[in-house]
Simulated scan of single mutants.
Amino acid sequence: MNTAAAIARPAPVRRAPDTFAIGLMVLLCAIWGLQQVAIKSTNGALGPMLQAGLRSTIAAVLVWGWARLRGTPLVRRDGTLGAGLLAGVLFAGEFVCIFAGLTLTSASRMAVFLYTAPCFTALGLHLFVPGERMRRLQWYGVALAFAGIALAFADGFTRSPAPGTSAVAGVLGDALGVLGGIMWASTTVVVRATSLSHTSASKTLFYQLTVSAVILLALAFALGEPRHVHVTPLALASLGYQAVAVAFVSYLTWFWLLTRYTASRLSVFSFLTPLFGVAFGVVLLGESFSSRFVLAAALVLAGIVLVNAPSRPASAD
């Protein structure tokens, strides 16, 4: 197939998430929520950029092996190189913003600002992908779910941004959280609005993992993180979970879902991720939560239901 044909071919029609897709998204959000606990348990042994870079490297090797096993070509001229490199840079930038921001602001504030991503995703898809346009009721659902996230982590706004940091540094950390959310959203929009929408989930993920591995490992060496490595069984187990379960299995599943279902309706489920993160923190780390968290979870679930409500005639909207 030549490049022109690949670009000219119309994108396949995506449908609203069914029970199978919803179940998969809930499972993915649980996996991503547990990742927060895994990262916390590894920060003392591996620097954040090194940790993220190694994760991408291991997962890229696994994706390459998976593609070879299935006979899926990863290196072929199909008009996706430019979009793939852009998606990889955005993917890496997201993690740079997250890890750098967490040194300047609290985890609670970072969670709120980072999870503006589904809002930006819905906006970007609405503007650039005709088949992803949302109705007024769905926008209300996005707003309701984000309000739930803000309520869940409202305590973070009454505390100092991060120990030992100034108010100005805290604002910068918050801004990095929003920028990380924009980059996360932009990655999804690039995957849906460019030639990547025609290619396999394996190739889409391979682009992001390889590009991000190069960028993140380069940053890790520039920051001198490899000189401060303390390998422990817990760190190895955590890195293995992040590389295999998160970066390989869950991301591959996510991009596979994007080839079949509307991304705007899928992305709103990611509001569940920080709630799972809190739940796992309670169960595994003995952290506590307030009754407000239960109300916040209800708002998030209500918002997801609104976004995924059955379509109505245009005249009724």
Results as ranks from 00 to 15, higher is better:
Gly240Thr: 15
Thr3Trp: 01
Ser238Val: 09
Ala60Gln: 05
Leu34Ser: 06
Leu151Thr: 06
His230Cys: 03
Ala38Arg: 02
Val282His: 14
Ser288Asn: 08
Ala122His: 01
Arg109Asp: 09
Pro310Asp: 08
Thr262Val: 05
Gly47Asn: 06
Glu132Thr: 02
Leu137Glu: 12
Arg192Asp: 00
Ile98Ala: 01
Phe91Gly: 02
Met25Arg: 04
Arg292Gly: 15
Ile58His: 08
Ala302Leu: 06
Asp155Phe: 13
Pro17Ala: 11
Leu219Asp: 04
Pro313Ala: 12
Val129Met: 01
Val112Glu: 02
Ala314Glu: 15
Arg55Leu: 11
Thr57Lys: 12
Leu223Met: 14
Arg14Val: 01
Gly173Asp: 06
Thr199Ala: 12
Thr187Glu: 05
Leu151Glu: 04
Phe271Arg: 03
Tyr140His: 14
Asp174Arg: 03
Val294Tyr: 09
Tyr140Lys: 14
Ala237Asn: 10
Ile58Trp: 14
Ala16Leu: 11
Val305Trp: 12
Ile215Trp: 09
Val96Ala: 06
Ala297Cys: 12
Thr262Asn: 02
Gly88His: 07
Phe271Lys: 03
Arg192Thr: 00
Tyr251Asn: 11
Leu266Phe: 04
Ala247Thr: 04
Ala222Tyr: 09
Pro12Met: 11
Gly170Phe: 07
Phe269Ile: 08
Ser270His: 15
Ala154Ser: 08
Leu217Ala: 09
Leu176Trp: 01
Leu81Gln: 04
Ile182Ala: 10
Ala5His: 11
Trp254Ile: 01
Thr116Pro: 01
Pro10Thr: 10
Leu137Ile: 14
